[in-house]
Nucleic acid binder design. Structure first.
Lengths: 169, 169
DNA sequence: AAACCGCGTCAACATGGCTGACCTAAAAGC
DNA sequence: GCTTTTAGGTCAGCCATGTTGACGCGGTTT
């Protein structure tokens, strides 16, 4: 009887714990995107533009299909925002040397500036959270977050250097 | 000179660390929503329906304005999905006893079943991550995630029992 | 009685996903 | 060298979910 009660209690705690995790993710993600969204809206861009800017900044000379693999959207969706970014001079495309079908993407100076501006609030938010929580907690955060990913995404974080999904280049 | 180098290195590490945090959040959120999204699509619902179902399940007898405060969307947006959920018998509305202007929301049995089904994969994903990472890491995860929230959201997690933002009821 | 509040609704619009079809040019395979 | 595959672009249309703004009804508060 005592055992049964303990079991039920365990279950309840676990349920609470899991819900907390779900909600933390929901709220954190929302807060995380809110500030850049405002900046973006002012220049008639959306979250999609931010993602493209971010990953092009992260992986200079990334190809379109590599970018698609990261974002997991269709090329039609990407092309809309990417096209705008290119036309408005935030991103440069240069034809691949080895493979001339590829368009290697890179931020222009203007693009770098926008990226910096957009990510600044996010960086601050994370830095604040890391600082408040302490180094050990950060390690735990990373472990748990990694555990939530599928193998494919997880692999992006394990290799020695920051690497994009490598296809032949 | 050695100092300077160390400083630069510190900066680089910090930058890497922060980017990792940003990306973990991006990928984790995407994975987290992917599975429910599939189930939802099959019954012609979207992520917005899930959120409503989730929070109504979480806070039975929640009022419309409390729900709006949690979701931070306009009532017009909410009303679209909430209306469908009510019409299709996933959510019941009952007029508030104290304040008859209020519509207290509750999941029907059908709603509970859908909620369970939708959240199941998410619960499993979190449970797996928690288990893989260990109790201490989970504590760290929570600390960091809390640090990312604004005070308002953070307050939702600190009180003794799970509480919704309390207005007069 | 007046003002405010909770909730619903109509209309119009933007963003960012999607599918499907079709094209060019370059690379790879045989 | 011809064929097939690949990288990338483009047109057209659809859908979900967010937005603003305006207005109405009934219940509560002052």
């Amino acid at each position: 009887m005592a055992d049964l009660k303990a079991g039920v209690n365990q279950l309840f705690l676990r349920e609470e714990e899991l819900r907390t995790g779900m909600e933390l993710l929901f709220y954190a993600y929302r807060e995380f995107t809110a500030e850049p969204d405002e900046i973006l809206a002012a220049i008639d861009f959306g979250r999609a533009h931010h993602r493209v800017i971010y990953f092009v900044g992260r992986y200079p000379k990334i190809t379109v299909s590599e970018l698609l693999a990261i974002l997991k959207i269709t090329k039609q969706s990407l092309s809309r925002v990417l096209g705008e970014l290119v036309r408005q001079g935030f991103i440069d495309q240069q034809t691949g040397a080895r493979d001339r079908r590829q368009r290697l993407l890179e931020l222009t100076e203007k693009g770098v500036e926008l990226e910096r501006q957009l990510s600044e609030t996010q960086r601050q938010r994370i830095a604040r959270a890391y600082k408040m929580a302490g180094a050990e907690a950060v390690e735990g955060f990373r472990k748990v977050m990694m555990g939530m990913l599928d193998d494919e995404d997880r692999a992006k974080f394990t290799p020695p250097a920051p690497t994009r999904p490598v296809t032949k280049r």
